[in-house]
C-alpha cells in the first residue's frame, strides 16, 4: 500500500521546497493508475493546479484523463458554505454571504475550518478516488487541520460546530487521510519538518503519511572505494593542470555535500516513526522537464 491508496493527501512544506511540484506529481501518478483524481491548490498562488496549462478556478477543470484541478480560497469556500446553509433563502445570499465571510475572517478558525471542510467534502463525494491538496506552508496547515476541533470548542452551539464531527473523523482515519511533508536535505528545512511532525501529532487529528526529501544528494561512492578516493584526494599530484585541480575540488565539494545530506537524513529518519516512509527525489542537473523527473523519481521510490 502506498500513499496513493488513500482518499485524501494533504501536501505541505516550507516555501522553496518544491511542495507544489510534488503535489502535482502525486496527482499525475494517481491519474496514471486510472484513479479519478482531483488536485486542489489551497495556497494563495495557483501552485500545483496551475501547472497543467489552465488557469484553475473555483470549479474543477479536467486537464488530463482522470485528472481535474481547482483552486480555492477561504472566502470562496465561505460563500459556498453560506449559500448551502441558506437553501431557499438563496435570493439574499449575495450581500448576506459577503457580510458573513467578512465576520468569519475574524472568527478564530472559521476560515481554516471551511478550507479543510472543502478538502474533506471533495474526498467524500464519491466523485474522486483521490484528492491531492497543495496546501499552505507548515504553520498555516497546522492551523487548518486543528480548526475543526478548535471551532467546536469555541463556538459549540452553532451549526458550523456540528459540522465538524465527520471532518475530524475523516482526517483522523489513517486509511483515508495522509499528510505529506515536503522538505530538503538541509539543516533548517529538516528541523522544521521534525517540529511539524511533532505538532501534527499533538495538535491535529491528521496522520503523517510520508516525508518527501527533495533535492536529495545520494552518496557518490561505495564505502570501500570512498576510503581509497579520500586518500587520493588528500594527496593530489604535485603538478596538476587547472582542469585537474578543478576536478579534484569539484569532487570534494560533491562528497562534502553528500556527507552533510546523509547526516541530516539520518537525523530525519531517527525522528520519524518507522511506519512513515521517506521518499527521496534527487537533485537534478540542468534539465528541461523538471516535473517529469520529479514524477519518475517518486514513482521509483513508491515502487509503482
Amino acid at each position: 500500500m502506498t500513499i496513493l491508496d488513500r482518499r485524501l493527501l494533504i501536501v505541505g512544506g516550507k516555501g522553496g521546497t518544491g511542495k507544489s511540484l510534488v503535489a502535482a506529481a502525486l496527482a499525475e501518478l494517481s491519474a496514471f493508475r486510472n484513479q479519478r483524481t482531483l488536485l486542489i491548490s489551497a495556497d494563495s498562488s495557483p501552485g500545483a493546479a496551475g501547472m497543467f496549462g489552465v488557469v484553475p478556478g473555483h470549479d474543477a477543470i479536467e486537464v488530463r484523463r482522470n485528472l481535474s484541478v481547482l483552486q480555492i480560497e477561504s472566502e470562496e469556500s465561505l460563500s459556498e458554505f453560506v449559500a448551502l446553509q441558506l437553501g431557499p433563502l438563496g435570493a439574499v445570499a449575495g450581500p448576506v454571504a459577503k457580510a458573513f465571510s467578512f465576520v468569519a475572517i475574524a472568527a478564530p478558525g472559521v476560515a481554516e475550518l471551511l478550507l479543510v471542510g472543502k478538502y474533506a467534502h471533495e474526498a467524500r463525494t464519491g466523485d474522486w478516488d483521490l484528492v491531492v491538496v497543495d496546501a499552505a506552508s507548515s504553520g498555516h496547515l497546522l492551523g487548518e487541520l486543528a480548526a475543526p476541533e478548535g471551532v467546536a470548542a469555541i463556538a459549540p452551539v452553532g451549526r458550523l460546530a456540528r459540522e465538524t464531527g465527520w471532518i475530524v473523523a475523516l482526517l483522523n482515519d489513517p486509511e483515508v487521510t495522509a499528510v505529506v511533508n515536503v522538505t530538503l536535505a538541509e539543516e533548517v528545512p529538516v528541523s522544521e519538518t521534525i517540529e511539524f511532525v511533532e505538532r501534527l501529532a499533538d495538535e491535529t487529528p491528521a496522520n503523517l503519511g510520508a516525508v518527501v526529501v527533495n533535492r536529495a544528494r545520494p552518496q557518490l561512492y561505495a564505502k570501500a572505494l570512498r576510503a581509497e578516493l579520500d586518500e587520493a584526494l588528500a594527496d593530489p599530484p604535485k603538478r596538476m593542470s587547472a582542469g585537474s585541480r578543478g576536478l579534484f575540488e569539484g569532487v570534494q565539494i560533491g562528497l562534502d555535500r553528500a556527507d552533510v545530506a546523509s547526516a541530516i537524513d539520518a537525523r530525519l529518519q531517527a525522528a520519524l516513526p518507522d511506519s512513515v516512509p521517506i521518499l527521496h527525489i534527487p537533485e537534478f542537473g540542468d534539465v528541461d522537464d523538471i516535473a517529469e523527473h520529479v514524477r519518475e523519481a517518486l514513482a521509483d521510490e513508491m515502487s509503482l
Binding site: L220, Y221, L225, E228, L229, A232, P237, M240, S241, G243, S244, G246, L247, F248, G250, V251, I253, G254, L255, G285, D286
Partner: peptide, 25 residues
C-alpha cells in the same frame, strides 16, 4: 587519457559525473 594516473582516473569517474552535472547547472 587524462593528465592523471590511471587508477586516479578510474577512482574519480563517479565523482566526475557529479562535477559534469554541476558544471551544466
Amino acid at each position: 587519457s587524462s593528465p592523471l594516473a590511471k587508477r586516479t582516473t578510474e577512482l574519480l569517474a563517479p565523482g566526475a559525473e557529479y562535477v559534469l552535472e554541476r558544471c551544466a547547472v
